[in-house]
Design a binder for these strands. Structure first.
Lengths: 220, 220, 220, 220
DNA sequence: CATGAATGAGTATTCATTCAT
DNA sequence: TATGAATGAATACTCATTCAT
């Protein structure tokens, strides 16, 4: 017995955290597969090989369990996107990287879309944690503004308001993951990203048409 | 005795359809407000001033009631968009009109977004009627291809594949209505439409950047 | 138009009775097939091609409808047995005839057994109309006593108390029809009657054993 | 810390079986008194002093509860009859004993007749467990054949086919218990057994009549 | 700490019966 | 008199949560 070993059952300070994550991982599939109401706590406990009582020791209500589940998933999403963005320096490349990481995340974990749907369906009173997460994060906001400003200053982006660009891009991505998930249509990640970039970056109009429209809109 | 008079209580031929619609309208709000599981049939009947039994005479199960509710909403959406498109002739104006009508519909009836979420959350086994509706409609598909082809032929649209344009546009709209609904951020319909058109039509890049990228991508 | 024909819609005095019987006939199968609770009044009306309201004009409650249904069936049974008994003169032949008619009736209308079961299962508070019918009929009772007395007086039947004979015979027949119906075993009417007569008339014991037992029972 | 002590609430291994039986006993009276459909699960729980949920933990559906109830009753009947038969050696005495035990069982537990009726009334699709039980039991069948064969070989029973004897006896007993229960006529167990034995063993006919009939049937 | 037996609130659905026409 | 639309009482079953051990 080592000199530092205390008598009695050793306390494993990580046990709690490890088990917590185990529970959340299984809960994510369970919720995604069965919906919130049909996700049976008993089944969760069974799949984990622990008792229902123990699950409730970690998460005092089913609702909090669900909240933690989605929270964890969105943290992972955030992490993936941040990591991808940090790998490159060029502002445009950062946008590329962020979008690709975002799409890739939901491509690999489609059940997270399901969780986002469930959250809204079951807990309308609470704000969606997805949007909540975005709104609260002023730091990210600032970063985005900087990237946009740089791209505009460098003459690479048209002078589109940062907020407008973010909102259209955000909605497009949001719609894309939902649509991928719910239409059942299988779409390759790469093709999809390419199509998306093509339109968002280049627009649909030809230069000729754009010029014509500019004349009409601002005649002077 | 009138020749046409049958014995018994005379049937009011419109009664059925009228009541059916009344029920669906109230059901739409009820489902949207409370979610599927928490929408109490008794409350529905009470709000309608009829008995629960009558509700079940019209819709044999709660699920069928829900299905009819969303079906009706999507029919109305379809109708609004079609009507808007038919009002103008220019292909580009048709696209404008469709997008605007779509956004306007969900702006006026935000609870329909809720219904779409609920449908997915509760009935994962069935295909979402929203996408089902799109998939089945070959005629609409053909119309869209024609509009795109015309615009490209006229030199107004870049030679973007019709399918790609539709999918990006569709995802963007889909994401927009969800995002509007779920973020809680109030956004003016007009501003939003303007921002959306600006980016989708003109793209984010400047012409200079576009030229530069074209050089890099296809050096020759 | 005949001289006796009154103006206006002629009253058909039999219509009521005819329709009543139609209803009862259909009701008998319906009850037998579905059980009392699962027999749907609406289905009854549909099968009859009339409206539910009309059924309730003839029988003010479902319960009374059921009672009338079984009453009619038992009247028919009574009629069949009486007719068979009246065809022959010899007292023993009358017993034969009655038993055979009884078995034949239930062989042809097995659903009546079902009705008898249902009556007991659903209306325990009421006395079974089958037994009620027997108890009330003093005339039949008298007739049976006379037949037994004659057979005993003629030295054809042992001096078995009439009541005992009737009760054992009655129970045996009752058990036979139930058993036929519920065991699902197909048994030919003739074989069954033959076996039944053999044992009831001749007994199981040999004469030798009977003599031996008589010695033991009444030693003196 | 004891070596065998597992964490958590210790399981009482008999608790389950004990409670199961308690539930079945109360359920038997409840079903018999109220019929299947009118037997309220809540009332059952109340009478047991437990919650409805607990009842459903033991029997997942009302139907399975009912099936278990009748199963238990018929097992007890089987047990009583077998025990009575095993007490005596003489084959004829075994028959006596079996019949008496059978009648005594239903005399003491008349509600079991009610259950048998209910089973048929409510679950026509399933075979009655009463007959099912008989059909499946080849061993009993063999035993009965042996007893009959012995009695015939010993010259105590006429050469009646075993199957015929069993079927008539079975039907008679079946009819007797039903008739007892449903006629409402109170009949003493002893008198009834005596009358039944008298007729089944000795038959109704006198020897003279029997001889006469034998002449007629087989003239030679 | 872990267990799992017990709880009990919550709800869709059926169908005999009524009654306006 | 016949019709059939409307009624509403009545009830099995689930599952998150508790708590004795």
């Amino acid at each position: 017995m080592s000199a530092t070993r205390k008598p009695g059952r050793p306390v494993d300070p990580d046990l709690h955290e490890r088990r917590r994550k185990q529970i959340l991982d299984v809960a994510a599939s369970l919720f995604a597969e069965n919906g919130y109401a049909n996700a049976d706590t008993q089944k969760l406990a069974d799949e984990l090989g622990i008792s229902k009582g123990t699950v409730f020791r970690y998460f005092p209500t089913k609702r909090e369990l669900f909240a933690a589940t989605i929270e964890r998933a969105l943290e992972q999403l955030q992490h993936d996107v941040d990591a991808a963005v940090d790998l490159v320096d060029d502002p445009l490349a950062k946008i590329f990287a962020a979008i690709t990481a975002y799409l890739r995340y939901f491509d690999r974990r489609p059940e997270v879309v399901e969780l986002m749907i469930l959250e809204r369906a079951e807990f309308k009173d609470r704000k969606s944690s997805y949007f909540d997460r975005h709104d609260k994060c002023d730091e990210k906001d600032e970063r985005w503004r900087l990237i946009m400003a740089t791209l505009v200053a460098d003459g690479r982006f048209r002078a589109v308001p940062a907020e407008r660009a973010r909102s259209v891009l955000g909605d497009l991505l949001y719609g894309t993951i939902f649509s991928n998930h719910m239409s059942g249509r299988p779409r390759s990640l790469e093709e999809q990203a390419e199509g998306l970039f093509d339109i968002i970056f280049n627009g649909l109009l030809t230069e000729a048409e754009r010029a014509r429209r500019a004349d009409v809109d601002q005649p002077e």
